[in-house]
Design a protein around this nucleic acid. Structure first.
Length: 198
DNA sequence: AGTGTGATTATCT
DNA sequence: GATAATCACACTT
């Protein structure tokens, strides 16, 4: 059984376990490769786009696990999520930050504001910009080796920390500790009000 | 090192 | 018409 098939089973299982399992996994596109170090889980809770049911934007959240859920927000930023939960149940894991491994030159082409390699991918909007991810990636199967953007087996994560999800309005899903990050890669994790002090 | 704010548009009410 | 799973920059301490 391939790693891809096994990972899709993990994504179909417990939502928070899926968010933890994505830590350490590699995100690959062309010559670019990065190791995921921060994720957030969204299911059917008040902070999730799926909370109000199926819409044209959220329909992929109800599709099978392992697909790309990409959306645009704040009039400026694209966000990359990996769908989770079995088909029919809503779920997505937001990829918030990653450690660049290869193709840093290509990432820098679009991340001109990054003053160091740390700033290439340490935030969901930055990561999408570096990988040139936009709406055209909506629904791409990230567990298909022929896809332009895909997930590949990565390295184990030693210690996983968690905290509250970031950027949600009060009473709209804040307070749920559904954010996970690699405690040994804090320097590549996005800045936050809730996260590690630096 | 911390706080505050403008940018800018797809999506839904 | 309001809101947003953010970022970058200005300004204060």
């Amino acid at each position: 059984m391939s790693w891809e098939s096994e990972f899709r089973v993990i994504l179909a299982g417990d939502l928070l376990a899926a968010a933890r399992a994505l830590l350490g996994v590699h995100l690959v596109c062309g010559s670019m490769r990065a190791r995921i170090v921060e994720t957030e889980a969204y299911g059917d809770d008040p902070g999730s786009h799926a909370h109000r049911g199926v819409t044209p934007r959220t329909k992929v959240m109800f599709d099978r696990p392992g697909l790309a859920y990409v959306y645009f927000t704040y009039g400026a930023h694209w966000m990359l999520n990996v769908t989770a939960q079995p088909e029919g149940n809503p779920g997505a894991i937001l990829i918030r930050a990653a450690e660049p491994i290869a193709g840093l030159e290509e990432m820098r082409l679009r991340r001109l504001k990054a003053k160091s390699s740390v700033e290439l991918l340490n935030g969901p909007g930055k990561l999408a910009q570096a990988f040139e991810i936009d709406g055209s990636f909506y629904g791409v199967d990230l567990l298909n080796r022929d896809s332009i953007l895909r997930l590949e087996e990565g390295s184990k994560v030693g210690k996983v920390q968690n905290g509250n999800r970031i950027g949600l309005a009060r009473g709209k899903g804040d307070g749920l500790p559904w954010r996970f990050f690699d405690a040994d890669s804090l320097k590549f994790v996005s800045r936050s009000t809730d996260g590690p002090s630096r």
